[in-house]
Amino acid sequence: MDILQIFGDYIHLLGMFILLMKLCLTRNCGGISGKTQLLNAIVFTTRYMNLTTTYASLYITIMKIIYISITYCTVLSIFLFFRKTYDRERDAFRMELLILPCAVLGLFLTEYLDTMEVFWTFSVFLEAVSIVPQVYMVSKSKQVESTVVSYISCLGLYRGCYLMHWLYTYLKLGFFRKMSVATGIIQLIFYCDFFARNLPILKQKNNGKGFE
């Protein structure tokens, strides 16, 4: 484990925490895509199914439990506690368009035909595209919450750290997982695309206009 990975994990955690805090403090989930959070919940559930069977370290086990808990709390906040403020109309991206292709890719591109491995591969692909409903929602409403900007910035940093971590591992140990690196790059491109697309809105915000 290197510092890049740990920094990435904490930044990821920070992003999820900012989102959950925003939901709990404002009791409002306007502008936040419930579908992206639901996809994240699926990602963590499928990836960490080996939580009880495979033990790596105390750090990993605790972080997995925290990740799953925060994501489930976020999903519950959006779909149960504060569902009255959930913008169903604008969160219109069809999740099955992401889940089904990822399931097919997971099944066919898995390196080892083993249940946990297929689930892992599926989760890696789904994680790469899980931000799509959020990006779609922002582009549909033409408004972007500052929380969403912070959240996506954290996720982008997290992915960047992990990519550097994989590069470091490759240089040091001489191997890398193609699947992780390829999907990691795709994921990072989605985040960059979000910022590139919303640059005009973000600039406006900096000038103090149209802050949502």
């Binding site: 484990m1 990821h12 495979t54 997995k64 491995e117 892992w120 191997f175 992780s180």
Partner: peptide, 10 residues
């Protein structure tokens, strides 16, 4: 091996 290495990641 690579699989066990992957368990060290989140």
């Amino acid at each position: 091996n690579i699989i066990s290495k992957r368990h060290d990641e989140l």
